[in-house]
Amino acid sequence: MAGSDVLAFIERILPDLLRGAVITVELASMGLFLGLVLGLPTAFLRAYGKGLPKYIATLYVEAIRGTPLVVQLFIIHYGLPDLGLTFPRFVSAWLALGINSGAYQAEYFRGGIEAISAGQMAAAQALGMSRLQAIRHIILPQAFRLALPAWTNEAIYMVKYTSIAFMIAVPELLARGKMIISWYFRPTETLLAVAAIYLVILWVVARLMRLVENRFKIPGIGFETDQRA
């Protein structure tokens, strides 16, 4: 196979793959966002809550972490319609990824919260802050910084996990690759192109997170920044 032939082939399939990549990036960023929205309150309920809300938060985290992501995806896409809840493919994938990520993000944030000494809450309350004000102004900003390295890993995993959406035929990057393979029967070049695009996305994500970490860096609130490219 001549090199120019390979290049021409890749040029031909690239627009299709890039359209898939856009969906991959959308899924990943929306999934991370949903995970954040679910994960933060879950973390605070587990760390500071009591009674039923805390129990529900714990149940959520344990149930999600104790089952495979694909099973969660299938329950949402093929199981929930039995209960009258039917979602478009993209929405099912988004919900599965977001709900899954929320459980993991909750644990990262909880780790951050628990690494903060009880004296911080005491000092805030001694100033006259309510518990909620103390959480908002004192605990959250520190927990967020402490959780950032783990959150960066979560962002990177999220990009890779979006590929399971191909199992319910969401036309993301991997699904496009699969389609292209069935049209042209050239799996090696196609999959290498798919992998290369994932690599570029992940590289960009890592750079972005590095910027975020530098932006929020504060002396004494340690997180390692230089382990990732």
Binding site: S117, G119, Q120, A122, A123, A124, A126, L127, G128, M129, Q133, H137, I138, P141, Q142, R145, I218, G220, I221
Partner: peptide, 25 residues
């Protein structure tokens, strides 16, 4: 209240440690 272990808010500058109570409370 002044604590044995200081308990300064680690994410705030000295100035903001002093200002935060004024702003929030």
């Amino acid at each position: 209240m002044v604590f044995q272990e200081f308990n300064l808010f680690n994410h705030l500058t000295a100035l903001n440690n002093v200002a935060i109570g004024l702003k929030v409370v």
